[in-house]
């Protein structure tokens, strides 16, 4: 059986909020290392990969592998019934028909309990090759969100160019063009504002802004976001969570003819 207690319901609320517009039905794969989810969007252009390590829960118990097929719309409805600070416990039997969610308020003695019916989801698992990326940019997640939002007003695509000069986000649209240039930056007082660029070779790739704007819904999960790029491979956008848990998005680059 599965029993996983989260100190704050807020974490799961934010994760589900960040991915529910990309993927609708997905398996939450539970085993003794934690709860994982991997799903592609309908167009197979973007992929979500979530890992909530067992250490992110206290306690965490999962005796055998359980796949919880959940509709994220249904999960969103139930998670709205939780206060952000509620303690959240997920429970399921070994061959479950439902997943049980218990929300406990630490301040009052209120305990609420919900069951969500599970679905049989035949989901293909993709092998994501280990990649040594040519460029890794770590930057404030709010800054990345702003760049994507600003440029999406002008164009459908953004080119991300990384060189020893820094990183340049460029777009061309019907009304004109825009570009934002960032350099490495260290703020001793506010390290969450740091921009770190780790480059082994120059990279230039083009991506759909629609998907990037969507990924940025995860900005509330982490102050910083990591962008990993190599020429001709999908972009990795990573929001690190505590205890080595993470929410990652992959996006296939656009290719010019």
């Amino acid at each position: 059986m599965l029993e996983a207690r989260l100190e704050q319901a807020n974490l799961l609320k934010k994760v589900v909020d960040a991915i529910k517009d990309l993927v609708q039905d997905c398996n939450f794969d539970c085993n003794d290392s934690g709860i994982a989810l991997q799903a592609m969007d309908n167009s197979h252009v973007a992929l979500v990969s979530m890992m909530l390590k067992s250490e992110s829960f206290s306690p965490f118990r999962c005796d055998r592998n359980i796949a919880l097929g959940i509709n994220l719309g249904s999960l969103t409805k139930v998670l709205r019934c939780a206060q952000n600070e509620d303690i959240l416990t997920l429970k399921a039997e070994d061959a479950p028909d439902v997943v049980n969610l218990v929300f406990e308020s630490a301040e009052t003695d209120r305990i609420s309990e919900y069951d969500i019916k599970l679905m049989d989801i035949d989901q293909e698992h993709l092998g994501i090759p280990e990649t040594e990326y040519a460029a890794t940019i770590t930057m404030p997640s709010a800054e990345f969100q702003r760049i994507c939002r600003d440029l999406s007003a002008l164009s459908e695509s953004v080119s991300i160019e990384c060189s020893k000069e820094g990183v340049k986000f460029n777009c061309q649209g019907d009304i004109g063009s825009g570009s934002i240039h960032l350099r490495s930056h260290t703020n001793v007082d506010k390290p969450e504002l740091n921009v770190e660029i780790d480059l082994t070779e120059p990279v230039s790739l083009t991506f759909s802004l629609k998907y990037l704007v969507n990924f940025c819904k995860a900005s509330g999960l982490s102050n910083q976001v990591k962008l990993c790029l190599s020429n001709e491979v999908p972009l990795l956008v990573e929001y690190a969570l505590s205890n080595n848990s993470y929410l990652r998005f992959y996006l296939a680059p656009k290719i010019g003819d």
Binding site: M40, S43, H44, V45, A46, L47, E124, H125, L126, G127, I128, P129, S157, T206, S208, V233, P234, Y250, A252, P253, K254, I255, G256, D257
Partner: peptide, 14 residues
């Protein structure tokens, strides 16, 4: 014109 390939090109089914 710009072409948008899918991720299936890059990641293999397990």
């Amino acid at each position: 014109p710009i072409h948008q390939p899918t991720l299936d090109t890059y990641f293999c089914s397990r």
